[in-house]
Design a protein around this nucleic acid. Sequence first.
DNA 1: ACCCAGGTGGCCC
DNA 2: GGGCCACATGGG
Length: 211
Amino acid sequence: MNNKLGPVYQALFDKFGPQHWWPGDSPWEIAVGAILTQQVAWKNVEKAISALKESNLLDIDEMVSADAETIKELVRPVGFYNQKTARLMDFALYVKNRYGKIEKMLDGETLRVRSELLSLKGIGRETADSILLYAGGHPIFVIDAYTRRLAGCIGIDPDQDYDDLKAVFESEFERDPKLFNEYHALIVRLGKEHCRTKPMCEGCPVFPFRK
DNA sequence: ACCCAGGTGGCCC
DNA sequence: GGGCCACATGGG
């Protein structure tokens, strides 16, 4: 129980309004974006996504049969492009062979799908949760660097284990994908807009954080 | 010339 | 379980 999680959400929503996340049109595009954005500025991801679209390769069926060197060139601006190309193509092949399309995979029971995503190389907890929530509509709270910074401002240990921190947020509210979606999106909005560095507390224009 | 960005996996202890 | 490192480009 944390007495600030609710008020902070309210303040963020009042300030910024609904965020309409994830910035991507289809479940597959969201999954691709989630992998590409790992430890990378979203601005760079936008370039790669556009480039893939231009080449008609932002499509699971096209991606599995594409030339890896072609994908690498398109994905280059995000960095880590060798790894990310391999992981994108592996993921695409896995989903296509096993389910045909990602919607089918995401159709399963939440924790079972989460385990399956986590078993794939290149998909860790944050990426799995982003895909589950934003591409699949599952009631999962995503923990990222911005979320940890926010946690640090309201008396929640920001350095605790991913799943423990996730449980803190999830246990505070009804398990509502719409709410989890909005809350996390608002946290990122605040982080991008206001505080790129350490704690979000200092001079925050939205909520009077106190140490 | 630094430092950071919506992480992850591998290896070590 | 935790601490360090490589992965790589683009923008401040």
